[in-house]
Write a protein that binds this DNA or RNA. Sequence first.
DNA 1: TCTGGGGTCCTAGGACCC
DNA 2: TCTGGGGTCCTAGGACCC
Length: 361
Amino acid sequence: MSPWVLHVDLDQFIAAVELLRRPELRGRPVIVGGRGDPTERAVVSTASYEAREFGVRSGMPLKVAVRKCPEAVLLPVDAPLYEAASQQVMDTLRAQPGAVVEVLGWDEAFVGVDTDDPEACARRIQADVLAATDLHCSVGIGDTKIRAKIATDFGKPQGVFRLTRDNWFEVMGERPTTALWGVGSRIGARLAGLGVETVRDLAAADPDRLAAEFGPSMGPYYGRLGRGVSSATVDDTPYIPRAHGREVTYQQNLSDPAEIATAIGSLAEQVVKDIAAEGRPCMRVHLKVRFAPFFTVARSRKLAEPTYDPGLIGDTALDLLRALHDDRPIRLLGVRAEMVPPEGGYDDQTRRTARDPRAAG
DNA sequence: TCTGGGGTCCTAGGACCC
DNA sequence: TCTGGGGTCCTAGGACCC
């Protein structure tokens, strides 16, 4: 028996959940996003595999998606429905004998198991999830979290793939650094500037050079990513959130000061509901503004006293906005409340996030 | 083509103190 | 008159992920 990390990822999760209540749409291109209105400012949450064949991708503006695939069926996002389906999936994972489950999002989780046959474990998870929810998933098997996470991509859809120290370079060595979890286009470009193009290059890069470019924490972390080295400990300790925020993109840009004040007040009230449910008051207020056409600014301020008062939070956000505002119309407003940490701080009481650079490799 | 909403973490640089 | 080195706190900004 040896420890394995499994990464379970539901296939086209949101679209698949919608298809369960609309089976007549099966086989047709389906796009879920916004309020389901392609003329509105919104993006694609998930596209079915049929829609992906037309080039539709998550994060794409709905207007663009519809242009690429005019015959697609457009559906509005129904978060509570996906939340409920997600609960069923996670409960199924927790019911696996000996499994430790670390939830990463609605549609994915790490599962830690002790076994001689991780493939059999993976297949049983797929069968149990399908039986309980009618949803298909893919499973990545790894000897570290990052390897398990990346392995899943090679298993999709409905498959199982194993990625370990033994086949890491064979599978990943010649791929671009952006194939790694946590390396996006910006970091990829900066790495390329250092002559680091592939995963193999990154694995071989001098840690001191990486530290000089990215700092003492992130530099060596990227080096470890290149080797597939990360924590292998699956942790089911409940995660304690740091902050709650609300943001809204307005269909019509805001310019009237009274309208703006009302909008911020409403965001502050929603945020207070969330932090009150958490039981920890707001310590710091963050404001995010997107001016038209597409220019985003963020500001924040620490409060003199922690508070649950939406008036105070809203006024602070408004104050931060006034220091920025010069009559440009506003596309988006966001108010975020950073909560007072629990006694003893976060590190003592909560697990680290799965992608935390400090987590030991 | 026109870009959502929910988050997390790291780094740089200034202010301030000893 | 000009000036160090270390530490902490704070804000702004960048990057990434689902």
